[in-house]
């Protein structure tokens, strides 16, 4: 009980000293405005060229089908930064579509974004599904 009283007394003295010190200084009201920008930027990055080629191989023997083993590429990476307003958007998505040219008839082109890896931070989403495009699709449709 004595210890508590001593502690309360010390606290009171300390506060009193602080108040006195503050009254000695010049009055200064600082307004700190914290402004958070909306951010929605993305980029496609690669170690080499961002123009990629998917080459369909010819069959080696009559009766065999075309060879699609080399018609794949995983050299491109999606980078993005996003700061969103919780009230306006609960989350954001990245969409893709073909904007020029067309996928040759008889073939379909699909893309899959692998789960996030890297040194970023935040709520990073991932897609593990294949998406495909038809020539005039606005967005790709899921292709499992």
């Amino acid at each position: 009980m004595r210890l508590i009283k001593l502690f309360v007394l010390c606290t009171f003295l300390c506060l009193s000293n602080f108040t006195v010190f503050a009254q000695d200084g010049e009055e200064n009201n600082n307004t700190v405005a914290i402004s958070i920008p909306e951010v929605a930027i993305m980029d496609i990055e690669s170690n080499g060229s961002q123009s990629i080629s998917l080459v369909v191989g010819a069959p080696s023997e009559a009766g065999l089908m075309i060879d699609l083993t080399a018609a794949a590429d995983s050299s491109l990476w999606l980078n993005y930064s996003s700061v969103r307003s919780k009230t306006n958007e609960s989350d954001r998505s990245i969409y893709a579509k073909v904007i020029s040219g067309s996928v040759p008839s008889g073939l379909k082109l699909r893309v899959k974004a692998q789960p996030y890896t890297g040194s970023g931070d935040g709520n990073l989403r991932s897609s593990c599904k294949w998406y495909k495009w038809a020539c005039f699709d606005k967005y790709g449709s899921e292709d499992n």
């Binding site: 930027i41 990245i94 020029s100 082109l109």
Partner: peptide
């Protein structure tokens, strides 16, 4: 063909 991606920001 050319592919594009965009974030859904109003």
């Amino acid at each position: 063909c050319c592919l594009t991606g965009f974030t859904q920001t109003p």
